Simulated scan of single mutants.
Amino acid sequence: MGTLRQSGLLAGEALKRAFVARARALGFDSVRIARPDAIPLAPERLRAWLAEGRHGAMEWMAETAERRSDPRTLWPEVRSVILLGLNYGPSGDPLAALGLKDHGAISVYARNRDYHDVIKGKLKEAAGLLAAKGGADVKVFVDTAPVMEKPLAQAAGLGWQGKHTVLVSREFGSWLFLGAIFTTADLPADAPERDRCGSCRRCLDICPTDAFPAPYQLDARRCISYLTIEHKGHIPEDLRRGIGNRIFGCDDCLAVCPWNKFAQTAREARLVQRDDLAALPLDALARLDDPAFRARFAGTPIKRTGRDRFVRNVLIAIGNSGDRRLAEEAERLLDDPSPLVRAMAVWALSRLAPEEIARHASGRRRREEDGEVRAEWDRALAASGAAP
């Protein structure tokens, strides 16, 4: 310690206090610290989840499982894991857009700037104090590295993983973005948070696609957020109706949590929801080509899905709208270059104007080279009573 005092460096509780003050000055709403060995049960739970195939097509989850299960495997030198939360609570009802059937509902987290960009800059600034004041090495992570942020956040006391597997905070409800800083600094750890869900099942019961096989278990293959954001292929037919008009993500299980009575509106301006992204007209979205899509959603998380997957989602919402006027948007996309789009155009048209399917199938079904699109035509024709 003599060397530290002579050099002006901080350590232990003093360094922790200085860091917390800096992090809060940068806008972080919660700051807690966990030991790198604080989640001993996580590896087995992760292996079981992967063995069930509940990660869907997210192969990177399996490929990084070993590094993901223990912070020390990812970085052997780590001595403390700092978990930071940034509140993105909405100012109004996050589910209000679900009642606008001719509009597409966007998840609250995507209604402004991409949180990765917002948080990473703040994390780097905060981590700089550990290097300057503590002489420590650091690594920062925002949902892009094999780090189990939610179990670590519970171990650090930020909140607990609810029955919907998402972190719940006594102060901010369901609305916390998480970032992590790994450091060689030996900082005092905080006490873990306990589970406070009790007998409540609201998050489980509201799920439109039954994505929770049991409390605290999520099957991503049935999760609307996974299907509309991560899933790159055709969305299974039996799940489409449950998607409703959700075109990017889903907030149902988060929004109904009783702990949201303590939630607060986001303070960070770049995370305050933009009204123009809460509910978007489906007809306008269906007409987006790739350049228009990129321009419309530049800087938001929506851009990363790409135009084809996004319009696939829009067509599912159109098919669920019950609005016959939107059938012309589906008709126009029957010849789209993307098979993802063509297939969902067939499905949407079959839902809104089944009597038109046979006429539109003429020639198109025979010329179609994509097997999934042909199968969509066959199902639509059979449902309408016409022979394939």
Results as ranks from 00 to 15, higher is better:
Met1Cys: 00
Gly8Trp: 09
Leu9Trp: 12
Leu10Lys: 03
Arg17Glu: 15
Gly27Asn: 10
Asp29Thr: 02
Ile33Gly: 04
Arg35Lys: 13
Pro36Lys: 00
Trp49Tyr: 14
Leu50Ile: 14
Met61Val: 10
Ala65Pro: 00
Arg68His: 12
Thr73Pro: 00
Leu74Glu: 13
Glu77Ala: 12
Arg79Ser: 01
Asp93Ile: 01
Ala105Thr: 02
Arg111Tyr: 04
Asn112Asp: 11
Arg113His: 08
His116Arg: 13
Gly121Trp: 05
Ala126Val: 09
Gly134Pro: 08
Ala136Phe: 07
Asp137Gly: 13
Val142Asp: 06
Ala145Ile: 03
Val147Gly: 06
Ala153Met: 13
Ala155Met: 04
Trp160Asp: 07
Thr165Gly: 04
Arg170Tyr: 05
Glu171Ala: 07
Gly173Cys: 01
Ile181Gly: 00
Thr184Pro: 01
Asp190Gln: 08
Arg194Cys: 10
Cys197Lys: 10
Ser199Phe: 10
Leu204Ala: 06
Leu204Tyr: 02
Pro213Asp: 13
Pro215Tyr: 05
Leu227Ala: 07
Thr228Asn: 00
Glu230Tyr: 05
Ile243Asn: 04
Ala255Ser: 10
Phe262Gly: 12
Gln264Ala: 14
Leu280Arg: 02
Ala286Pro: 06
Arg296Ile: 05
Thr300Asn: 05
Thr305Arg: 02
Arg307Met: 03
Val311Asp: 07
Asn320Tyr: 04
Ser321Gly: 11
Ser321Ile: 09
Ala327Glu: 08
Glu329Pro: 08
Arg332Gln: 14
Pro337Arg: 14
Ser338Phe: 11
Ala343His: 15
Ala343Pro: 00
Val346Asp: 06
Ser350Tyr: 11
Arg351Glu: 15
Leu352Phe: 07
Glu355Tyr: 00
Arg359Asn: 11
Gly363Phe: 06
Gly363Ala: 07
Arg365Gln: 13
Asp378Tyr: 12
Ala386His: 14
